[in-house]
Simulated assay, not measured.
Amino acid sequence: MTKRSLANKVALVTGGGGQFGRVMCQALAKRGCKLIVGDCDLTAARDTAAKTEGLALGLDVTDAAMWTNAASSARDLFGPLDYVFHCAQHRAEGTDAESMARLWATQVSSLEIAYRNCRSDLGSTGGVHVIFVSGAAWQPDPARPLWSAAEAAKRQWHKAHQLGSRSGQSALIAYDVPPRASRKTADDEIAAATLWALSRDEKQAFVPGGFGVAGFCRKSAQ
């Protein structure tokens, strides 16, 4: 299979100032992507952008106006988006059913806002929304019900926009067991497997360590 180059692709990374978002930005920059680093913490976004030659933007993923601004800024500076990497994490308090329902709705609504704002760009470039989910999307963790609910919501959104859609504007990267200590960090492993999959036009990939289904990424991108 011919590998697709990620050089000069335009990528918007939500949560780009966070731990995993920063690793994802660094991996994309290394491969020549043009980056828009979005985060609700603008200082953190600027720090990541400074290290990856990206554009930092304040972005609360639940705010439609901020998404509109992010997509417009990316388009004006670099051109239409090729990828949106959803690395932002939602935090909520409480473990009751109402809190879980609220968190589920927040996850899905933020993805829908992103989809509405970036759909035309991704349609023209053949790009995708890249969703990251852990094993909690398949096997809920009783000790962390809110986290499990958030992961399951993202998986459900992907099923609606990828498996049941001809447009195929969603890619799912699943992971559960971190790699061995002697190898890369867990975040590096997930980022590498993500880019390995995207360079081959895969819309579902599973980082080594835990799912007995087709589509494993058995090696990292080189």
Rank of each mutant, 00 (worst) to 15 (best):
M1W: 08
T2Y: 11
R4I: 15
A7G: 10
K9I: 07
L12V: 09
T14S: 14
T14I: 08
G15A: 10
G15N: 11
G16F: 01
G17K: 05
G17P: 10
G18F: 06
R22V: 10
M24G: 08
M24K: 03
Q26G: 12
Q26D: 10
A27G: 11
L28W: 00
R31G: 06
G32M: 13
V37M: 12
D39F: 13
C40G: 03
D41C: 09
D41R: 10
A44M: 05
A44S: 12
D47G: 03
D47S: 10
A49F: 01
A50M: 09
A50L: 11
K51G: 08
T52F: 13
E53W: 08
E53S: 15
E53M: 10
L57H: 09
G58D: 11
L59D: 11
L59F: 12
V61M: 15
A64D: 15
A65N: 07
A65P: 00
W67L: 04
W67M: 04
T68C: 10
A70P: 06
A71P: 06
A71L: 07
S72V: 12
S73V: 15
A74G: 15
L77T: 14
L77M: 09
L77A: 11
L77N: 05
F78P: 01
G79P: 00
L81K: 04
D82A: 02
D82S: 09
V84W: 01
H90P: 10
R91T: 13
T95L: 07
T95R: 07
E98W: 07
S99H: 14
A101I: 06
R102K: 14
L103A: 08
W104C: 03
Q107I: 07
Q107W: 10
S109D: 15
S110W: 04
S110D: 07
L111P: 01
I113S: 00
R116P: 01
R119C: 11
L122N: 04
L122D: 05
S124G: 02
S124Y: 02
G127C: 05
H129D: 08
F132D: 02
V133A: 13
G135H: 08
A137K: 04
Q139F: 15
P140C: 00
P142N: 01
A143Q: 11
R144C: 03
R144V: 06
P145N: 02
W147P: 01
A150N: 02
A150F: 00
R155D: 07
R155H: 13
W157S: 05
W157Q: 04
H158M: 01
H158L: 02
K159T: 13
A160E: 12
H161E: 00
R166H: 10
G168N: 10
S170Q: 09
L172E: 03
A174N: 01
V177M: 07
V177H: 03
P178K: 00
P178D: 01
R180P: 09
R180A: 14
S182E: 15
R183H: 11
K184M: 14
T185Q: 02
A186L: 08
I190P: 11
A191L: 13
A193F: 00
L195C: 06
W196H: 13
W196K: 03
A197F: 12
A197R: 08
A197W: 11
L198A: 09
L198Y: 08
S199E: 15
R200E: 11
D201R: 10
D201I: 04
E202K: 14
K203G: 02
K203E: 06
K203V: 12
A205Q: 03
A205L: 03
F206R: 05
F206T: 08
G209A: 06
G209Q: 02
V213K: 06
R218H: 07
R218V: 10
S220A: 14
